[in-house]
């Protein structure tokens, strides 16, 4: 069944979109990652214009993160004070990111920049996941014990605040800066940015793991909401039909993914995901390096 996507301006099969949403939802449910970093490139491969893939991605992240956030909220696993610092940086980052996005679009460079961002981040994420899964598979039995958190250079920064939920007394600067970077990524890539924020929260800020996922989901919902709004206003690239179809698939897929994930030894699947992520990154890189069929491209001039 074909459906015409009003903003992407292409016709696609409904079941293909539902299936794509379902597959990404399944992966995100299984691994606890957002999945946005796979969704955007796959949409581009489907023929959705890169700008629309990113704008729609920000909207999709809102849908796919909100129910998880509410579940963590009910259990009291959201550090709102930390979250507020993160998203105050994030809002600034995402608004700046969307404005830069618009400027690059007018300069005809946005498709290139989106691809470059993805190649870099997919390589990093895929590489790290692959590395982790190999290491985990090698020493499955050797468990190390970690301290609550370690004190490092970072605890000497000024503007310290007390975070009751996280049982921390740390500077307010790093969360704001990290949030700002996340906002930029959300605007440019249509991703939530959990894969960057979670390691930072655990290893750098030293938050207890119990509140990390809930707080990061809270920030992702807020930052994606702002990015989605900014894209809709400045770039007109949020396709509501595309987002809802993908979200429907993703919500269903995530349920099965999380059940499946609980029953299965993670290392090998994680390794498989790493391979997939690297393959998608490789495909995008190929698109940048291979000589295009036509060196010339003609587009309507963007009207201010």
């Amino acid at each position: 069944m074909e459906i015409y996507l009003p903003i992407a301006e292409i016709s696609t099969n409904v079941f293909l979109l539902l299936g794509l949403g379902g597959a990404i939802g399944f992966l995100s449910g299984m691994f606890g990652v957002g999945g946005g970093f796979l969704m955007t490139p796959l949409l581009i491969f489907l023929g959705v214009p890169p700008t629309v893939a990113v704008g729609t991605g920000t909207n999709l992240i809102v849908a796919s993160s909100v129910s998880g956030m509410m579940a963590h909220w009910r259990r009291g696993n959201v550090d709102f004070r930390m979250g507020a610092l993160l998203f105050s940086g994030g809002i600034g980052g995402s608004w700046l990111g969307v404005s830069l996005f618009k400027a690059l679009r007018e300069a005809g460079q946005i498709d290139l920049v989106i691809s470059l961002f993805y190649v870099v981040f997919l390589t990093i994420v895929g590489g790290l996941m692959g590395f982790e899964s190999v290491r985990a598979a090698l020493r499955r039995n050797a468990r190390r014990r970690r301290k609550a958190h370690q004190h490092n250079w970072f605890h000497g920064l000024p503007l310290k605040l007390r975070f009751r939920r996280s049982k921390l007394y740390v500077s307010a600067l790093p969360p704001v800066i990290v949030g700002f970077l996340m906002g930029l990524l959300a605007a440019f890539m249509g991703v939530g940015g959990g894969f960057i924020m979670i390691p930072v929260m655990i290893y750098l800020i030293g938050m207890p793991t119990s509140v990390v996922v809930g707080t990061s989901l809270f920030v992702i919902v807020v930052v994606s909401t702002v990015s989605s709004f900014a894209h809709a206003v400045q770039n007109h690239n949020v396709d509501i039909i595309l987002a809802l179809l993908l979200a429907l698939g993703a919500v269903i897929g995530a349920q099965y993914g999380s059940r499946f994930g609980q029953r299965i030894q993670g290392e090998y699947l994680r390794g498989l995901l790493a391979v997939m992520v690297l393959a998608v990154g490789g495909r995008l890189l190929y698109g940048l390096v291979a000589r295009p069929d036509d060196l010339y491209s003609a587009t309507l001039m963007v009207m201010r």
């Binding site: 909207n59 999709l60 809102v62 849908a63 796919s64 993160s65 909100v66 129910s67 998880g68 509410m70 579940a71 989605s228 509501i240 987002a243 809802l244 979200a247 429907l248 919500v251 269903i252």
Partner: peptide
């Protein structure tokens, strides 16, 4: 729409 879809789905 995204908030409602995500929430209802959950």
């Amino acid at each position: 729409a995204a908030l409602v879809a995500g929430w209802v789905g959950g």
